[in-house]
Amino acid sequence: MQTNPVEPVPVVVSAHGELAPPAGHADRKRGLSSARVEEQRARFGRNVVDSTARRTWWQTLWEVLREPMFLLLLAASGIYFVLGDVSEALTLLAFVMGIVFLTVFQSHRTAQVLDSLRELSAPRAQVLRDGQRQLVSAAELVPGDVVFVDEGARVPADGAVTEAHELSVDESLLTGESVSVNKSVARANALPEEDPGGQLFFGSMVVQGQGQMVVTATGPNTTLGRIGKSLTGITEARSPLQLETRTFVNRFALAAIALCLLLVAAYRWRSGEWLPGVLAGITLAMGILPEEIPVILTVFMALGARRIA
């Protein structure tokens, strides 16, 4: 989903010297209206930082079809077609398609369940809308929202501080600095880069005090979001369980292929025919190869994730 470049919410000074948003932005006593929230959400999108590209159906299907077991089954189906045994070939192909569909379906079901778990564990924010203080998901925040922060809460978006009462924030997620940073009311007409002490940043943790801010940037337009964009090109590493399973299956696959070739050679030497020998060799390889391991891991992980949800 494309989002427009960040446009910071300008802040001006009222007649009493207090910070007040300009016309068209949040009223600090009432917050944004529901209609204005919908307009901002349509313009800027959800307040979500996602540094990884979502896997498509085709990518999952390609990974499944690369499994040695499925390659052997497809080879056996092709040999049955060459031998003229169409019914056996179609039966074997139907089983292959069934296993592939189950594996791909459960993989995506697992991904959806994990997404649901992330939504449940997502931070929530206290926001002022339509004159009422509400508790909403941080993903629903939009630029211009008036947000309350207090000790122990994670800052749900980038924003300009409009009230600060002994407010101190841990920004080590962004800067690597373990010492907390004191925050004060943002200076009037100052850009975020010019007044970092008056800005709160998405992902930082409030370690002391309480305050109020006006959201200036959400999602990929935040400081943390721009860091996330720079990580999109990093390839996700396989888990230790996946690596061990892959090594285990590959070793058995090599042994099965070696025995398959020996059986084909022996069949050719005794009967003088190649295709039946190849079919017999594939049958032996399928009997040796632990083809259930990838499928069982996928299905049982999906069932476990669903029970957790």
Score class of each variant (00 low, 15 high):
residue 192 P to F: 09
residue 240 P to F: 04
residue 243 L to I: 14
residue 72 L to Y: 09
residue 7 E to H: 12
residue 259 L to Q: 05
residue 127 V to T: 04
residue 240 P to S: 03
residue 14 S to I: 00
residue 56 T to C: 05
residue 197 G to T: 12
residue 95 F to C: 02
residue 216 T to D: 02
residue 238 R to E: 14
residue 27 D to K: 01
residue 201 F to W: 12
residue 43 R to H: 14
residue 210 Q to H: 13
residue 238 R to A: 13
residue 46 R to C: 05
residue 262 L to M: 11
residue 299 V to C: 08
residue 105 F to N: 04
residue 41 R to Y: 07
residue 156 P to M: 10
residue 249 V to L: 08
residue 298 T to Q: 05
residue 280 A to V: 12
residue 21 P to E: 07
residue 294 P to N: 09
residue 190 A to W: 06
residue 21 P to T: 13
residue 27 D to G: 02
residue 1 M to P: 09
residue 235 T to N: 09
residue 24 G to P: 07
residue 106 Q to Y: 07
residue 178 S to Y: 09
residue 273 E to H: 07
residue 48 V to Y: 02
residue 154 R to H: 12
residue 231 L to Y: 13
residue 121 S to P: 00
residue 289 L to A: 05
residue 256 A to T: 03
residue 106 Q to L: 09
residue 93 L to D: 02
residue 249 V to C: 06
residue 225 G to S: 06
residue 175 T to L: 12
residue 84 G to N: 08
residue 166 E to A: 14
residue 97 M to D: 04
residue 212 Q to D: 02
residue 130 D to Q: 07
residue 101 F to A: 15
residue 265 A to C: 11
residue 263 L to E: 04
residue 199 Q to E: 04
residue 154 R to E: 14
residue 4 N to D: 12
residue 300 F to A: 15
residue 128 L to Q: 01
residue 81 F to N: 00
residue 126 Q to I: 06
residue 257 I to S: 04
residue 238 R to H: 12
residue 83 L to Y: 03
residue 1 M to Q: 15
residue 23 A to I: 02
residue 115 D to R: 15
residue 266 A to H: 07
residue 66 R to S: 14
residue 6 V to H: 03
residue 71 L to P: 01
residue 262 L to S: 06
residue 129 R to E: 06
residue 118 R to T: 06
residue 17 G to P: 00
residue 235 T to H: 11
residue 248 F to A: 11
residue 148 F to L: 10
residue 121 S to I: 01
residue 254 L to I: 10
residue 181 V to G: 02
residue 22 P to Y: 05
residue 271 S to R: 12
residue 132 Q to T: 09
residue 211 G to T: 05
residue 100 V to T: 11
residue 20 A to Q: 14
residue 295 V to A: 14
residue 309 A to I: 11
residue 184 S to W: 07
residue 280 A to D: 03
residue 306 R to P: 00
residue 123 P to A: 03
residue 2 Q to T: 09
residue 159 G to V: 07
residue 152 G to V: 11
residue 257 I to E: 01
residue 268 R to K: 04
residue 116 S to Q: 12
residue 300 F to P: 00
residue 278 V to L: 15
residue 201 F to S: 08
residue 159 G to E: 05
residue 68 P to L: 07
residue 191 L to E: 13
residue 239 S to K: 11
residue 62 W to N: 14
residue 300 F to E: 09
residue 94 A to N: 00
residue 86 V to E: 08
residue 204 S to N: 06
residue 237 A to E: 15
residue 243 L to G: 02
residue 223 T to G: 05
residue 114 L to I: 15
residue 181 V to T: 13
residue 115 D to T: 13
residue 237 A to F: 09
residue 70 F to R: 03
residue 304 G to C: 08
residue 203 G to T: 04
residue 85 D to F: 10
residue 285 A to I: 10
residue 293 I to V: 15
residue 284 L to E: 01
residue 259 L to S: 10
residue 271 S to L: 13
residue 163 E to V: 13
residue 17 G to S: 02
